[in-house]
Amino acid sequence: MKSLLLLATLFVAGCTSSVPTLNKYLLRSDAAPQFAGEPATAVVGLGTLTVASYIDGLGLVLETDEGKIREARDNQWAEPLRESLRSYLAQEIAAQAKQVIRARSSGEIDGQRRIDIRIDIRIDELHGTASGEARLVAYWTVFDTTERKITVESGLVESERLSADGYPALVAAEKVLLRRLAAAIAAKL
């Protein structure tokens, strides 16, 4: 009897609250994929790709006030940024540089070509701001694995105004910023 009463109470409590819709956004490049290109002189691939821990969750991040951020609960990336950024940037850089960019290195041994040029990227900031913009702060290096030295070391701090209210516009603005980052990297290869 007690259990029934409790269950009934819980049921009533559950019925009175509505469940908000969960929106998921997929980060995929619109650029044409470079599955095969001209045989390049050097194999280029992405190395380590790290994202700041505050954007390492699934929720899209919005700065609500100076220094205050909120991770959205009902508006999330479809997959963690550290995963989707790898394929997105590899495809964008490949499209800009007109050559195949390996999204992952696989520790090749003799008999297969290993990555000659490795691109390491660190995303320090990627969020919406209170002033109606998307902001990207990234740092990247190009490493020559044959010479074992960094050949290019650079960073990017960019903002992009949102075209409309809402999270779809924020996602679109962030895509634009990431495309600019890919272009900056491709220009240095």
Binding site: G14, L62, A72, D74, L162, S163, Y167, A169
Partner: peptide, 15 residues
Amino acid sequence: IFPVAPESDPIPEAH
């Protein structure tokens, strides 16, 4: 047992 009423996400506003 008694879930807290969820606070909705803040909406990004285009200025």
